[in-house]
Simulated assay, not measured.
Amino acid sequence: MLAGTVPAMAAVSVRHDVGQALEQLVRTGVPGAQAVVTERGRSWEAASGAGDLRTGKAFPHQARVRIGSNTKTFVATVVLQLVAEGKVKLDAPIDRYLPGVVRGNGNDGTRITVRQLLQHTSGLPDYLEKLGPDGARHYEPAELVRAAMTLKSHFEPGTKWEYSNTNYILAGMLIEKVTGHSPATEITRRIVKPLGLTDTYYPAPYETGIRGAHPRGYDQVDGKWVDVTDQDPSWGGAAGAMVSTGQDVNRFFAALLTGRLLPPAQLAEMKRTVPADVFPGAGYGLGLIRIPVSCGKEMWGHGGSIPGFRTRGGVTADGRAVNVTVNQVTATGSADVMKVVDTAVCSH
């Protein structure tokens, strides 16, 4: 029985529906896919396709994957903890904490608030427009921000929503400036260890592999599969470098949404959203996305895409947490992955 309290037939039905949805997802062209569903602290997995094209093996149990922009929710949580501690003010300009860092080409840190960074309403250009995702070399956060500052501001702060990884590189730099410790250290101390996320980590500087059992991540170049599992994720940094499992990601979002990581006032700020085209009908808060699902449940999460891996999911108000991972980004769209999330959330 799922979680010990759900009728056995219901558990079987959900597993069947999720399994079929994963098979359909793999038919879209991605090598493999895995779903992890968690309720009342108990998790189960379903997988389809190959986690390793060389051996044909499926995703391993409790597979560690690069979770990409789910990192942003960890970073935003730490920033909001610092807000709760009185060390950061949400509506203060980022220039107060990082003087002179955001400057040039219409980018002005004296007019962009911490809230606008976390909410993606800063107008700052994405450094990836300049650099592209380059896992072949190491980047320092300041280097990524400097690349962004060579580009023109996209709009007046607070007037629009537009996803920009630069916002979260700056949020990571803010954490380091205020605490004296790296975002990796603070995320580990404040979130990973207290929640017992034993398969979650922020890669060490220059670390290119994935620790523990993991699928291979792929890209397609000129119609051929290229293994891109090993890369230096410093180009993603506080915007996307972390590694985790579906089980741990589910546990994190469940803990966050039930108030275990933030006081009520800061969690409420995190859930204040603006319309965002990250998913159809979605709203973006402070590193947290309100995700529409077909059955009308309230669902919050994030998602991430990094060469080799795409993850989508979140947790519903009634406590079902879902994480779906595919091991190739380009073959299948986010919408295809979200269909599996929707099935896992709405099936009963």
Rank of each mutant, 00 (worst) to 15 (best):
G287E: 08
L256G: 01
L257S: 04
T273C: 06
L288K: 08
D248H: 02
E269S: 15
T245H: 05
T258W: 01
V278Q: 11
K271N: 05
L257A: 06
L257C: 07
G246L: 13
F279W: 09
M270Y: 08
G304F: 09
L257T: 05
A282L: 08
M299E: 09
A265Q: 13
S305L: 11
R260W: 04
R290Q: 13
F279T: 08
G287A: 11
R272A: 12
S244Q: 09
L261H: 02
T258L: 03
A265F: 03
Q247Y: 04
V293H: 05
Q247S: 12
T273Y: 00
L256R: 03
V274A: 08
V278E: 13
R260A: 13
I291H: 00
K271I: 13
G301L: 10
N250C: 11
G246Y: 04
G304D: 13
S294A: 13
G283M: 07
T245C: 10
L262Y: 01
F252S: 02
L267A: 10
M270T: 14
I291Q: 11
R260G: 10
Q266G: 02
V249K: 03
S244N: 07
C295R: 06
R290F: 00
T258F: 00
T273D: 11
Y284S: 04
P280R: 12
P292F: 06
G285L: 07
A265I: 07
R251M: 03
V249I: 13
M299G: 05
L256T: 02
W300H: 05
V293G: 08
F253W: 02
T245K: 12
K271T: 15
A268N: 09
G246T: 08
K297P: 00
S294D: 15
Q247V: 14
P263S: 11
D248K: 00
D277E: 15
E298C: 04
A254G: 09
R272I: 09
Y284A: 11
G285Y: 01
G259Y: 06
H302M: 12
S294K: 05
F253L: 10
G287P: 05
E269H: 08
G287V: 12
A254L: 10
I289C: 08
W300C: 07
T258E: 12
L286H: 01
M299S: 06
P292V: 05
R260M: 11
K297S: 08
A265E: 15
G281S: 13
A276E: 10
P292R: 04
G287T: 12
G285S: 10
R272K: 14
A276H: 06
